[in-house]
Amino acid sequence: MGTPAWLYYLFGALMLVVAGYCFVLLVLSVATHRPAGRDVDISHTLMGIAMAGMFVPSWAFGPRALWELAFAVLLVWFAVRSMQSIQRFGLHVPHALVHAVMSFAMILMYWFPAGLVSGSGSMDMSMAGRPDGAHLDAGLGLLLALVFLGSAIFTLASPNKGASHHGTHLPAYAMSAAGTGSPASPHGGPDGTTGEVEAMVAIPWLEDLSHVVMCIGMAFMLILMV
């Protein structure tokens, strides 16, 4: 007997929920022409779908090379955004950095897949290990898992709700950080039907929650790979 299958399905379903939620945010940001956090929405959508396929192999689709390429592009994007942020605001830990690390971890997961097999043996993972026997260094896996768990905890505790998607340099969050008001939605005020939907969906704490779930899911997968 190993990890019960329902646990993998639970994590897989959670990953899909995150992907679906972030996809809705993405559609809203396009519809309202607001680019803030769009890159994070794209990455979480892709990560959610990819992670769901790792937890439940029957849900996986698409060539592995394409997923690797997508996460490589995201890695470069967030790395560049991190450097730009440091250039502009001085030495600090940029918000984009954790998303760069998450993209890096996704690439590693595709390079060194773990063979997840349930107790019933019904869940032979389609990505069951590399033919050459190479595997992710356990130390690196643990380090990444710790970073993601730390990100989850500090995101939940942050008074700057929604910062996991939008950072803290956005004016609304800057005001909040200075103690001059409660965090306003970085998506701005409602505008017609789209605005009503946005007001229901683009809730800062919900955005943070999606990041937290993604972090815990990735950390769990990395621990399984160790």
Partner: peptide, 21 residues
């Protein structure tokens, strides 16, 4: 309010760049 600004990171720890927050 349309916010086009996407420099969305945490505040600086050091450096001479502006840091009003």
């Amino acid at each position: 309010m349309v916010i086009a600004e996407t420099e969305l990171d945490s505040a600086p720890i050091t450096g001479s760049s502006p840091a009003p927050v």
